[in-house]
């Protein structure tokens, strides 16, 4: 049985979709079978970030309504053969997502894939609660910024109350993914530090993704950043986060920390 992960945040624009694509590709680059599922009905974007926007035929709502088979709606990545996308519908209303329909789709996906990664929409409405409903573990994407931290705290509360795991009285495994982190600004005191965010949210850290133009470049090209340039700093941070998702214990490094000109020239690995 595959593991179901929800990538969530409450706040919009913090990097859920980017992180879903990057983590999904990182796991698939290791040969595991991965499907990334877009739950943002009406405002889908995972297809665009994955570079599959021209190939969408059927979507999640079609499958739920019985208009298409799951196998017809899944889009195989052109670069990685064990990576698949289940797109959201662009035209339908999000009320078309039924609890029973989502239950059926996720159960079926879990049978076939090692990882089912659900990209949650922003907010705390139906789409967001359905995306987290089946999760075995949650990746809470947070920017080092007050409104993002507050919304993450709210989402953590929902993960502990509105999921199947919570209803069964089990503990939801939650991981913090800190994105758009700028070590220099944090050091200067202009940005919340990693420890500040960890202390406030008190969930374990799974990775720190540095603020980087590589992320924008990758989405411009329609490639998960781990595929666009596997050696850039954000990609390496996502690879590490993916290894931690698999249960590996790795020390967390703060990307871009105290990197001088030599580090910049020679030390891409140090980032």
């Amino acid at each position: 049985m595959g593991k179901v992960i929800v990538v969530t945040s409450g706040k919009g624009g913090v990097g859920k979709t980017t992180s879903t694509a990057a983590l999904g590709a990182a796991l698939a680059q290791n040969g595991e079978r991965v499907v990334v599922v877009d739950f943002d009905v009406g405002l889908r974007n995972l297809d665009l970030v994955m570079g599959a926007e021209r190939r969408v035929v059927y979507d999640l709502v079609n499958v739920i309504q019985g208009e298409a088979k799951l196998t017809q709606a899944l889009i195989r990545d052109k670069r990685l053969e064990s990576l698949f996308l289940l797109p959201a519908s662009q035209t339908r209303d999000k009320d078309n997502l039924t609890t029973e329909g989502v239950d059926r789709v996720i159960t079926e996906l879990k049978r076939v894939f090692d990882w089912v990664i659900c990209d949650s929409p922003a907010g705390i409405e139906r789409g967001a609660t359905l995306a987290m409903r089946h999760a075995d573990m949650a990746v809470v994407v947070t920017n080092p910024e007050v409104s993002s931290v507050r919304d993450s705290d709210r989402i953590i509360g929902l993960l502990d109350s509105k999921t199947l795991k919570a209803e069964r009285g089990e503990r939801m495994e939650k991981h913090l993914l800190l994105t758009r982190y700028d070590a220099v600004r944090a050091e200067r005191g202009d940005m919340l530090k990693v420890d500040d965010v960890l202390e406030i949210l008190s969930i374990p850290l799974i990775g720190i993704i540095p603020e980087s133009s590589d992320v924008l470049r990758a989405s411009n090209m329609g490639a998960p950043v781990t595929l666009a340039d596997a050696r850039c700093a954000p990609a390496m941070a996502y690879f590490e986060a993916a290894r931690r998702l698999r249960g590996e214990q790795l020390p967390i490094s703060i990307p871009g920390d105290k990197r001088g000109i030599f580090g910049k020239i020679f030390g891409r690995k140090a980032a």
Partner: peptide
């Protein structure tokens, strides 16, 4: 047979 129908699209 839905399993034997493959629909593909490419937008240019």
């Amino acid at each position: 047979d839905a399993d034997r129908v493959h629909v593909k699209m490419d937008r240019d």
